[in-house]
Structure formats: structure tokens, C-alpha cells
Design a protein around this nucleic acid. Structure first.
Lengths: 343, 343
DNA sequence: GTGAAAGCGCTAACAC
DNA sequence: GTGTTAGCGCTTTCAC
């Protein structure tokens, strides 16, 4: 049902068109359009009005090729499916606010292979920097990053060797801290509920840290449930029901993220389970959504927004060629909410 | 705490480097790297191994300038704060899957001014097409779109005049349909809860359609609550409490989105309110999160993913220069859930 | 099947 | 303050 077919492929205007329309040389037109100060007010006005009248939009491709500068920062994240990465993106936007840099996003769906191809694609546009999640990359991706000659910031996680700069939290330490809090509160029969994602290295590290502290206390996970895809809130609900009917004497459920934790919490409340008396619950991330639940779920803030803005600042500084090779470890705080009893 | 300062600004490799390393002319290297078939297998292997060994990443800036082709689709959306746009983005990714096109995202935060500057910025990269939310744009933005000479797809909303192609639903009709369902169910004392966003035209149109049907039935909104920012789930909870304590005899609450509707629903359930007997509730969007609530909130699916993939297909087709100027109106279906009683 | 030359639209560098 | 010249790293075109 075509209703009108516009002339795609109209030739875009060039500097030359503005030059002719204003009677000013291309070079000076270029100066005006780049807000350079060494142009007389009269010339500037002539150019600006001609450009506006014609509807000229500069060609950054040509500009970038000529100047060898591209004001783009490649940002590569695993997913948009939960609230965690959009918030990192907002942090990045904030951090880039007062610079000429613009973020460009790519998504990997937690696949190293896709990360590699997205990275290749983005690097081919010669961005001013790269911000990407995690420290685990394919060899080829790592090589591209090392060879790129631009600032690289790996974010979210600090447990491992960074290529250049890194901003994040220690997920292993976060897992340990939560385990310690749970043990201190007196819980001993602990179940784990999480995603079936072998490539979510941060979730894996949290669980490793968690298990480590449990082991030292002679405790180990009694049962576990995993899911993939679907509504996390619903999955949390379903998995909670499943694990509790299979292993009714659990006294704590550790969820790998807040969304499934929230689903579990709602299920428990509906079923009159004494939380946190008989059963404690905890998630991870500190998502805003938790504010709207009947009672607060214990969680740990992953410092998402802050990570984004710090990473952006590092790229901005490195581009303005201050510094480089920075390591920033943020410390998430544990929020016991109302789902962990006092120890 | 710098731990290592890599040599930013290493000169990236060029075709010439690969040419010299492989002993093949630049032109033929270029052919191989673009997967052209008119190259002998022997030459191809030489080139490929040299390129891989060196870690060559092509410069798309130069390529785009020379070929006058850019495989980028500019995607401009209002926000990443709720689940609606990320899902549109996923639809777009899907729709672009089997093409050479790559989406690039920009966010406006519901500001026409920011839309204009994001658009300007993106058009300056000469993308192959633009997908943007809504039909309302500044005059300057509209002029840029019209003059761009590339396929433009306005998405989400079909209530108004499109520049080129359009894919969406009628929000006015959606509002009308919900009002009709509510009236049919026998509710008469209706309250509205929504965002304080004058520039969210789709929410506005839904409310207009809603009021229109109410008026015709001699009914009008009894009370309203507005919010801006913060956790939508929490705001839904707070606004529900506020509106019901101010106007206790309301028998229906119409929320402008599912998130605040979910917050309201949770609040009502906790306070033992008979839903949908004494009080009916409805939201909008059909977000996945609703699947995890104790009872289903009435809502309307905004067809987000489908809109994204259809829009992407239009751009892909127009680029391959089939068609153009397409209008697709999808029909959202009303899901009465368990929060509207049978009429 | 391969190579040489020209040029995409802009900006750096320098001359005036 | 303004103009001229020479590329940026590719791809197009055409010759071989």
C-alpha cells in the first residue's frame, strides 16, 4: 500500500553548494560550520544563512577522513533485555555530556563471537575509544583492541587482567560479601536460582565467590534452579515454586538477579511464607524496580550508572590525551532490605 | 592509579600495508576484502592471510566516501528507561538480520530539540535510512528528513501525516477501545494516572481517544494523578494510594503504562481491594513483566517488536530500491487480563 | 584476473 | 580574515 514514493537518492548538498550560494570560499564555509572564531561576523552570517536556507547537513564521512578524527565512542554491551545495561548507557551519556564525543551502541547477546564481529564493525569506523563489558574476549577481539591504538575501557568487572583501562566492581567479592551476610544472619540451607548462561562471566564469578565463603564455613548449596529467556519476573516465580516444592526445608534463596528475585519474593508473599523469618531472599543489581515491591528485596548495588560515567570520562580524558590505563574498582554496598533477618 | 599507558594513536593499517605484505595490488586486496568473486583463489589466499596476520581492519570511512554507500540505519527513539523501546530495537535488529544494514541508535529523552540535534548528527553520517518514533517533529527536523533523500520510517504511531513510510498503531483508537471495554464492563467512575510529559504524544493521543468515548457515553474522568521520573512501579503504588484516598469511590483506574499499572495493582492487592469487582485496572503496552504479577493486569499490546521488524524491512527494501512510502497500521489487541470484570 | 588513475567531500597547512 | 593546494584511504572505472 504505497501512498507516495519520494525521490530517494537525491544528491545531498556539499560545502561547494553553500559556498556558491553564499559567495564565500569552501574553506571559509568549512570554518564557519565548525564554529571557528577566525571568521568575520559578516562572513559568518552570510554562510550561516545560506547553509540554513539550503538545509545543508555536513558530511562527517568526508570530514573524518580528512581530519583523521571521529567523535564516536564505540560502546559494546551484552544485552538490552534487562534494566542493567540501559542504565550503564545513561551513565555513559552523562559522562560524555560536555565533550564532543558521541556514543554508538552495539549488542552482543552474551556471545563472544558476536562481540568479535560487532567490534570489528565498529573499529572499522575508527572511533575515538571503545567501552565494552567484561574482561573475557576472543583472542581475535583482544588482538583488535590491543592493536587499535585507541583508549579501551572494559567495564562492569575488575576480576581479571585488563587490556587498558577498567571500571567495575569485583563480582567475586560481591558474591563473597553476600554469602557472609547470609551466614551471619544464621541461614544455612541455601538454594541458588540463576540464568543458564555459561557466557555471563559476572554471574559466574559472583556464584564462585559465594560458594567460596560457604565452603569455608562448611556450608554448601543444597539445590539450584536455572532458566533461560522469558519474563524474568515470571521465571523467578516459577523457579521459586519449583525449588521449594522439591526442597522445602531451604531457608535461603540466592537469586542471580533482582528481577527473578522479585518474582520469587512476590510468590513467597502470596503463599504466606515468613520472609525473612523462615526464608531469606537476596538478588543482585539494585534495580530501581525493587522500590515498588511490597517489601524490599536484599540486593547489592552494581554501581551501573557510575561505571558508565567513569568509563566515559576515561575515554574523554584519554582522547584529550590526559592519562590512560586507569583502574577503578567501585565497591557495591549490600542492601539487606527486608528479606534478610538480622544476624 | 595508572598502571600502564598504551600507545594511543598508533597508525592504523591501510590497504597499502596489506598490499605490500602480500605482494598484491591495493585494488586487488580491496576486491578480496569485499568478497568479490573475480579474484583467483591463490591471490585471495595470499591477501587473506596477510590481512589476518597484520590484524587489518578496513577503514569504512574511506570506503563510504569512495563508494557513496553507508550501511547504517539511524534509529531515533525517545528513551531507554522502560522496556518498550529496547523491544522495538530488538525488532529492528531482527528485521535487519539478513541485510548488510546495521542499526545505530540515538535517544531524545522525549525532547523535540534533542531529536533535532540527534537527527542532524546522524544524517551527517549519511545513513541508508532513518527510523524514528512518532510523527511530531520540529520544522527543522522535518525539513532535514524530507531533504535527506533516503527512506524515512516513522514508527509507533499512525495518527497523523507521515513524511515517507509509517508503521505503528493508532493510539487514539487504542484509547477508544479501552474506554469502550471499560464502559461495557459497567465501570463509570474512572480515574487516570499517567506521566507528566507534554511531549509524549502517543500517551496524549491515547488519553484523547479514551476521553472521546467516555464523553459520548456521558461519562468523564473523575480524578487524575501525574508523575515524572523515579521508579515507575513505586510511582504507580504511590499515585494509586493518593488518588484512592482523595477519591475513594472510583471504580476504575486507567494507567498510561503497564509499569505504573503494575505498581497500582500490587498496592490494591496488598490492601485487600476487590479487583476487578470493586475496582478495575488497566495499563498499556503489554510488557513481559506483567506475566510475573499475581494476577494479570488488563493491557493492550503495542506491537513493539513487530513495529521494529516491519520498519527495518521497509528500509531494507527501499535501500534495495523496491518500494517506498509504505503505510502499515497494526492492530493492538486488548487483553482484559483479570483486572476488568466481565461486562 | 589484475592494475592505474581519478576522485568521493572535506580539512590541514600554508600563503596571502 | 580568507583563499589555495594537497591529500585523507578507499572504490569506481576503464585499460590491459
Amino acid at each position: 500500500m504505497a501512498h507516495y514514493h519520494p525521490p530517494y537518492s537525491r544528491r545531498p548538498l556539499t560545502l561547494r553548494d553553500v559556498s556558491e550560494a553564499s559567495g564565500v570560499s569552501e574553506m571559509t564555509v568549512s570554518r564557519v560550520l565548525r564554529n571557528r572564531t577566525d571568521v568575520s561576523a559578516a562572513t559568518r552570517d552570510k554562510v550561516l544563512s545560506a547553509a540554513k536556507r539550503l538545509g545543508y547537513v555536513p558530511n562527517k564521512i568526508a570530514g573524518a577522513l580528512a581530519s583523521q578524527r571521529v567523535n564516536l565512542v564505540a560502546v559494546i554491551i551484552p544485552s538490552l533485555s534487562n534494566m542493567v545495561f540501559p542504565e550503564v548507557l545513561r551513565g555513559i551519556s552523562d559522562g560524555l555530556q560536555d565533550t564532543a564525543l558521541q556514543p554508538v551502541f552495539g549488542v552482543t547477546e552474551y556471545s563472544a563471537e558476536r562481540e568479535e564481529s560487532v567490534l570489528y564493525e565498529m573499529l572499522s569506523w575508527r572511533p575515538s575509544g571503545v567501552i565494552l563489558a567484561g574482561l573475557e574476549h576472543s583472542d581475535a577481539a583482544r588482538a583488535m583492541l590491543v592493536n587499535s591504538g585507541i583508549p579501551i575501557v572494559e567495564i562492569m568487572d575488575v576480576d581479571g587482567a585488563a587490556i587498558d583501562s577498567v571500571v567495575g566492581i569485583s563480582h567475586r567479592a560481591a558474591g563473597r560479601q553476600m554469602a557472609a551476610a547470609i551466614l551471619t544472619a544464621g541461614y544455612r540451607r541455601i538454594g541458588f536460582l540463576g540464568t543458564k548462561m555459561p557466557d555471563d562471566h559476572r554471574a559466574r564469578k559472583r556464584l564462585e565467590g559465594f560458594n567460596e565463603v560457604l565452603s569455608k564455613a562448611g556450608v554448601s548449596l543444597i539445590d539450584a534452579e536455572y532458566y533461560a529467556g522469558g519474563s524474568a519476573l515470571l521465571k523467578g516465580r516459577e523457579m521459586t515454586q519449583a525449588i521449594l516444592s522439591r526442597t522445602p526445608d531451604l531457608d535461603f534463596l540466592y537469586y542471580s538477579n533482582d528481577m527473578i528475585g522479585a518474582g520469587g519474593l512476590l510468590w513467597c508473599l502470596e503463599h504466606g511464607i515468613d520472609v525473612p523469618g523462615k526464608l531469606g531472599l537476596a538478588g543482585f543489581n539494585g534495580v530501581e524496580l525493587l522500590d515498588g515491591l511490597p517489601i524490599r528485596l536484599a540486593t547489592m548495588d552494581a554501581c551501573r550508572r557510575q561505571i558508565g560515567s567513569r568509563a566515559a570520562s576515561i575515554v574523554a580524558a584519554a582522547t584529550a590525551d590526559t592519562g590512560g590505563g586507569v583502574r577503578i574498582e567501585l565497591t557495591p554496598k549490600l542492601d539487606p532490605g527486608a528479606t534478610i533477618r538480622l544476624g
